[in-house]
């Protein structure tokens, strides 16, 4: 089994924990059955294979040594199969693939992390990494927008983030009767974030409409576009740069992404159906 190339053929991993995050989203924690993938960095993704159904790219929502966490929303055949797995089940994993958030490029700066919906999942290990090395960074702000209060991910983590010094703000599009927090889109939270634009780095993940609006707002407020990093999504079949599905103009997102600097993304995202 150690002879396998983890980039072409999947390596067996066992589901060691699974819990519901929202009505249609679960977190699954995987451990290698024997050999493990090479080390994974926050922002990267793995191709996770449900036996006989297929594999899909899933960002890493937690990295703990060889233990990998994925947050999967049941929207297609493979994701439904993965969502339905119970502890003890075996999956195949290929990777890790793609670019990471590259937190070390932001050393000494204020960090502003902005998540829309499921976009919080790939940002979770970034928050963990930033909090794990507090003297290296300035203020850490996490801005989270979700559709409804019930769609909020990482609810167990948020208190811990706050306790460790992160400034976390949450807003929802559609409140319920119990919601007493902010209502509105995530860009409206930018005014709450304390950061020095000339010495800050921003990390964004969510729907492209939200990424475009937020990144432009950051740029308008004086953040250098190359210090705004965004995570983008396109169809992926191989993860290795060979299948062509994940093209976004000049980018192969499995190789040049999913995390790209706004300087790269800005001219591409306005082009419809690129």
């Amino acid at each position: 089994m150690t002879a396998l190339h983890a980039d072409m053929a999947p390596v067996p991993y066992r589901v060691v924990r699974r819990r519901d995050e929202t009505a249609d989203t679960a977190e699954i924690v995987l451990e290698p059955v024997s050999s493990a993938l090479p080390p994974c960095r926050p922002g990267q993704f793995a191709m996770v294979y449900a036996f006989g159904v297929g594999d899909i790219p899933l960002s890493l929502s937690g990295i703990d040594g060889h233990r990998l966490t994925h947050t999967v929303r049941a929207v297609g055949a493979v994701s439904r199969a993965l969502y339905g797995l119970r502890p003890g089940a075996t999956v195949g994993v290929r990777g890790p693939f793609g670019t990471g958030w590259d937190l070390d490029t932001a050393t000494g700066r204020d960090l502003v992390i902005v998540a829309g919906g499921l976009g919080l999942a790939p940002l979770r290990p970034l928050v963990a990494a930033a909090l794990g090395a507090p003297p290296s960074f300035g203020r850490l702000t996490v801005l989270i927008g979700t559709r409804t209060p019930g769609d909020l991910l990482c609810t167990r983590d948020i208190d811990a983030w706050r306790a460790n010094g992160a400034d976390v703000h949450i807003t929802v599009d559609r409140p319920d009767t119990d919601w007493t927090g902010d209502v509105g889109v995530v860009t409206t939270l930018l005014d709450r974030a304390e950061f020095v634009p000339g010495n800050a780095a921003a990390f964004l993940c969510g729907p492209e409409v939200m990424i475009r609006a937020t990144a432009r707002e950051f740029a308008h407020r004086g953040l250098a576009p190359d210090r705004i990093r965004v995570s983008l999504e396109r169809t992926m079949h191989c993860g290795t740069g060979h299948c062509g599905h994940c093209q976004l103009g000049p980018l192969l997102l499995c190789r040049d992404g999913p995390v790209v600097a706004w300087t790269r993304a800005e001219p591409l995202l306005p082009v419809r159906e690129l």
């Binding site: 072409m8 294979y49 006989g52």
Partner: peptide, 17 residues
């Protein structure tokens, strides 16, 4: 064909390139 996967009685997954 790129690889095959076999599932054993115990649920174990064996992948062969």
């Amino acid at each position: 064909r790129q690889w095959t996967a076999d599932r054993g009685a115990d649920g174990a997954l064996v992948v062969t390139e």
